[in-house]
Design a binder for these strands. Structure first.
Lengths: 123, 123
DNA sequence: TTTCTGATTAGACATCCGTCTATGTACGAC
DNA sequence: GTCGTACATAGACGGATGTCTAATCAGAAA
């Protein structure tokens, strides 16, 4: 395979948003150290499903009780994964009476999306 | 050189730009099991920088020798991280003479971007 | 051929991670 | 108050991960 064509990677027009920020300029060590934990938080199948399940729940939030029954791991394990998501800044939670509700922090998703998406920097 | 392609998760419904696919519908266990390794491959600061460095290199590719000098870890460690990126379907490589060149597999970035970005199909 | 350089592989090692059980805490009902 | 339920925390355990050194492989040049 020669480097005949690498369509999405060529900065053909320097004026246009050629590619995602990740591909436009090398990440600094500091940036990488900030971003990697966010990817790491989503790097587990259970957490990825938890994140998606919270995001797609009615009202944009879900209580732990509903999340727990959707998986086959123990309740403390769910609690652990939720904490990882929380500490990564991906979700937040609040106790309301008996139940604890989790929701997405939209900035987190937007940050990752902006990092990976070509046109995102123009917005 | 590895050429494994991970299946593409794409609800592909341009008529519903409400939110990212991740937030539109809960991920299945199988989808999560497919996607989590890609996030995991980017979940290390060195690998994240390697990925970005390759992507932003002139011609969209970089040789290992250039990548190695950009970090303070040993050359075998760089080689290890490059393999992780390769096995996640994020990059591919080829030996040309003395040097081995790496480049991004564009679908990988597009896959993640589509997962996280609202109305990704419109891009 | 031999030698040198670039890169991968092998193996070891310390640390991290995901999971569990057991326990603790918060809240509502009685 | 006590009891029961929802959730978090503590600690332990096995397996995965990131890093290193040493060895090996691949190609170019003398």
């Amino acid at each position: 395979m020669s480097k005949k064509e690498l369509p999405l990677l060529q900065p053909a027009d320097p004026a246009a948003p050629c590619c995602s920020p990740l591909a436009r300029e090398p990440l600094s060590g500091a940036e990488a150290a900030t971003l990697a934990p966010v990817f790491k938080a989503l790097a587990d199948p259970v957490r990825l499903r938890l994140f998606s399940l919270i995001a797609s729940s009615a009202g944009g939030q879900a209580c732990v009780c509903d999340l727990t029954v959707a998986f086959e791991v123990s309740q403390p394990t769910i609690s652990h994964h939720l904490r990882v998501l929380r500490e990564a800044g991906l979700v937040d939670c609040e106790r309301r009476g008996t139940w604890v509700y989790y929701w997405l922090l939209p900035n987190a998703l937007a940050r990752l999306s902006a990092l990976l998406t070509p046109a995102a920097a123009a917005a």
